[in-house]
Amino acid sequence: MAIGSGLGAQIGIAAESSYGTYVAPTKFIEFTKEGLVLKKTTAQSAGIAAGRLLPLSSRRVLTRKEVSGPLEMEIANKGMGIIFQALMGTSVTPVQQAATTAYLQTHTLASVAGKSLTIQKGVPLTSGTVTDKSMLGCKITSGEFSCDVGGMLTGSFEIDGRDCDETQTLAAASYSNMAPFHFGQMALKTGTFGTETALDGIRKVSCKIERPQDVERFYANQSALKKEPIENDQVKITGSLDSDYVATTLDDLHTSDGATSLVWEFIGPIIASTYAETFRITLPAIKLDEGPPAVDGFGVVKPTFTFTGLYDGTNLPKIEYLSTDVTL
């Protein structure tokens, strides 16, 4: 028996081979909060029947079902690749580094067609019995990463799903010894792509990657369920850089509307040889939208620069993840 509270909850994830078809979870994520729920649309008959004062129960029908909600977590040093793949789109096979136990995943921005997940959540009753709610056909429509002074690197993902299946067997959760990336490991670099240098004064970074999709593909012959969402707009990448005003680098880019490459990375302990645990986002071109410095008191000037990620014509944004994971 589990503990009859959130202490007994679990989240398991698996990549689907076919949209909306259940796959038993293979990865178990240490999450901080989730809001994945089944949403249903019903219609109630308005037919008039002499003397009937209340709508008839048998004349209410279920016309549409779907799943949506957020999934929040700390970004850990292993087990996260399956989520990055669903967000970024590239089919990734971890590449062994030399003859070590370090494996590099490179998640380059690509189409997310065919990238769906089964997300199984275990929700404990107060008795300690954990109920199964398997969310099928889960597509990640956005992912936001953030890290502040003294904090962990966190990720918040918006999910759109096809259905909730409560008939599956709850998988037995197992967790490897994971550690979160954190502010003490954080570096931010800007400059020419491939030769970016460290930028001083950065206190907080956030980056959001949005994958717009048509999630309203409800058709006849689908038993009230949607077909796989299709991308229907360009990718949107935005973020912010909270800083102390120690240099004019960002200020000058804001003024000129110039582009710079941005590398945001976390370097953890050595896995083997020269290969360290790594989480890295590379945006080959960003432009600053807002944030010119303003003095609002006696303290240090602290501008927050917002940015938009764009295509430099050659290099695509990517997430690199170096861990001991042999597979996603």
Score class of each variant (00 low, 15 high):
residue 195 T to Q: 09
residue 177 N to P: 01
residue 199 L to M: 14
residue 209 I to G: 12
residue 174 S to C: 02
residue 203 R to I: 00
residue 206 S to K: 13
residue 167 T to Q: 13
residue 205 V to R: 09
residue 211 R to I: 13
residue 188 L to T: 15
residue 195 T to V: 09
residue 217 R to A: 09
residue 208 K to Q: 09
residue 174 S to P: 01
residue 201 G to A: 14
residue 169 T to Y: 02
residue 218 F to E: 03
residue 164 C to N: 08
residue 159 I to D: 03
residue 156 S to D: 14
residue 193 F to H: 13
residue 203 R to E: 04
residue 188 L to R: 10
residue 159 I to W: 05
residue 158 E to P: 05
residue 175 Y to H: 12
residue 190 T to N: 12
residue 207 C to Q: 11
residue 209 I to E: 10
residue 171 A to M: 01
residue 219 Y to I: 05
residue 215 V to D: 14
residue 215 V to L: 06
residue 165 D to I: 05
residue 191 G to Y: 05
residue 210 E to Y: 00
residue 187 A to H: 04
residue 215 V to M: 10
residue 215 V to C: 14
residue 170 L to D: 02
residue 218 F to C: 01
residue 156 S to I: 11
residue 178 M to C: 05
residue 205 V to T: 13
residue 156 S to W: 08
residue 193 F to G: 01
residue 200 D to R: 10
residue 159 I to A: 05
residue 198 A to P: 00
residue 155 G to R: 06
residue 187 A to K: 12
residue 165 D to S: 05
residue 201 G to T: 11
residue 171 A to G: 04
residue 177 N to V: 10
residue 192 T to N: 07
residue 213 Q to C: 12
residue 166 E to G: 03
residue 213 Q to N: 12
residue 175 Y to W: 02
residue 159 I to L: 11
residue 192 T to E: 08
residue 201 G to I: 14
residue 203 R to M: 06
residue 160 D to E: 10
residue 165 D to G: 05
residue 213 Q to E: 12
residue 173 A to F: 01
residue 200 D to I: 11
residue 196 E to S: 02
residue 210 E to K: 07
residue 156 S to E: 15
residue 209 I to K: 12
residue 163 D to W: 02
residue 190 T to S: 13
residue 205 V to Y: 06
residue 169 T to R: 02
residue 194 G to P: 06
residue 181 F to I: 05
residue 162 R to S: 11
residue 205 V to M: 15
residue 172 A to L: 00
residue 199 L to F: 07
residue 216 E to N: 14
residue 189 K to M: 06
residue 155 G to T: 09
residue 162 R to I: 12
residue 195 T to Y: 03
residue 190 T to V: 15
residue 163 D to I: 02
residue 182 H to D: 07
residue 175 Y to P: 02
residue 203 R to L: 08
residue 196 E to Y: 05
residue 164 C to L: 10
residue 214 D to I: 07
residue 163 D to L: 08
residue 161 G to E: 02
residue 184 G to E: 11
residue 201 G to S: 13
residue 192 T to S: 09
residue 167 T to F: 09
residue 176 S to E: 10
residue 200 D to W: 00
residue 189 K to A: 07
residue 161 G to L: 01
residue 207 C to K: 08
residue 186 M to D: 04
residue 211 R to D: 01
residue 209 I to P: 15
residue 191 G to D: 04
residue 199 L to G: 06
residue 212 P to C: 09
residue 172 A to P: 00
residue 189 K to I: 01
residue 167 T to N: 14
